[in-house]
């Protein structure tokens, strides 16, 4: 079966020698959510810009539903919707007018535009505000409208570039439900995110990108297991109990515990059972920790495992609005 979205060896270097993409490849199965996971500056947005025909790659091939984005950009633009972190909606228009504009620029018949606008405004809880200028809209409402605009033409493929970055938890949950609904209806979604939790919830396949390269790929479950990132973190009052604790804890949880100062980290992918076992063993060894926490895997942990350094904020030259990076 042809992949719905394909990236093959994408390379892009920006002026000033920033290599945003350094040979990125992945393929997205039709009707699934694919997550591009990585910190700011990893190259996620650059990949989306290439796939949506906005940016030309220096090398490599990209295709949407089997159509090459460089060879048939006009056709490809009719196949996808795009929504992102920077809600690109027209401030001076109302929500309804924004949707009508996008519908017309997609050359949809008048009746279809009216019907789609009506449905989308209702489903995104924008009906009451539909005829108000956007100046009165909250960030979450703008983001919903941005997504609605991406859906006016009922595209079979949807690109979501950090759709929930900066949203409050409730808006984020609402958006997740919408995305799940779309996928249930057969839409193929490519989602970029910095949040492991989001990728975990939505994506059936993931690629972890860093410095323009895919450094790990697979299902969220496989990645979490492989990258061993759920840990029991034990902090001791002083270093007297460290040796005894290390001895007691070695052999459980599948991997040896790590120690730094008076903090011991014990990999616990097998689940909370490891923590119970650890508590019991510490008790037997006569060690009373100052704190004892079970830490769920985080993007930081994935990165630490993959790269040996934490995922820091370096500022993505490609994820800020285009105007800010123009020469």
């Amino acid at each position: 079966m042809t992949a719905a979205i394909e990236a093959d060896g994408l390379v892009k270097t920006f002026k000033g020698g920033v290599r945003a993409l350094d040979g990125v490849s992945f393929a997205v199965e039709p009707g699934t959510v694919f997550g591009l996971l990585g910190p700011n500056g990893a190259g996620k947005t650059t990949a989306v810009r290439i796939l949506t025909t906005v940016l030309r790659p220096d090398d490599g091939r990209a295709a949407v539903l089997g159509h090459d984005v460089s060879a048939e950009p006009g056709l490809v633009r009719g196949l996808f919707g795009l929504a992102g972190q920077y809600a690109a909606v027209d401030e001076n228009l109302t929500a309804r007018e924004n949707l009508r504009m996008v519908g017309r620029l997609n050359h949809l018949p008048r009746g279809v535009i009216a019907e789609r606008s009506h449905t989308l405004l209702a489903d995104f809880a924008l009906e009451d505000a539909a005829d108000r200028p956007l100046k009165t809209y909250s960030g979450g409402m703008r983001r919903r409208l941005d997504l609605a605009a991406a859906l006016v033409a009922s595209p079979p493929v949807l690109f979501l570039d950090e759709p929930t970055t900066g949203l409050d938890p409730q808006s984020r949950l609402d958006l997740w439900r919408v995305i799940e609904g779309l996928v249930a209806d057969g839409t193929t979604v490519l989602l970029t995110t910095q949040y492991l939790e989001e990728a975990d919830r939505l994506a059936s396949e993931l690629a972890v990108v860093d410095h323009g390269r895919v450094i790990a790929a697979g299902t969220p479950a496989a990645l979490k297991t492989d990258l061993g990132t759920t840990v029991v973190e034990i902090v001791l009052a002083d270093d007297r109990g460290v040796a005894a604790s290390m001895e007691a804890l070695t052999g459980i949880g599948g991997q040896p515990p790590r120690v730094s100062g008076t903090t011991i980290e014990l990999p616990a992918n097998a689940g909370p059972g490891v923590a119970m076992e650890a508590l019991r063993l510490l008790d037997q060894a006569g060690v009373v920790p100052v704190s004892f926490t079970l830490r769920e895997p985080s993007l930081d942990d994935v990165f630490l495992t993959l790269t040996g350094r934490p995922a820091d904020d370096r500022g993505d030259p490609a994820s800020v609005p285009a105007s800010a990076v123009r020469p």
């Binding site: 009719g78 196949l79 949809l108 449905t119 489903d123 859906l151 009922s154 079979p156 919408v178 249930a184």
Partner: peptide, 25 residues
């Protein structure tokens, strides 16, 4: 929820021929 995705009309909306391209322009 089933209505959000809508009916797929995407692939049909490709400019065929110079006349249609001009009209769309």
């Amino acid at each position: 929820m089933t209505t959000i995705a809508g009916e797929r009309v995407g692939a049909a909306r490709v400019a065929r021929g110079p006349l249609r391209r001009f009209r769309w322009g």
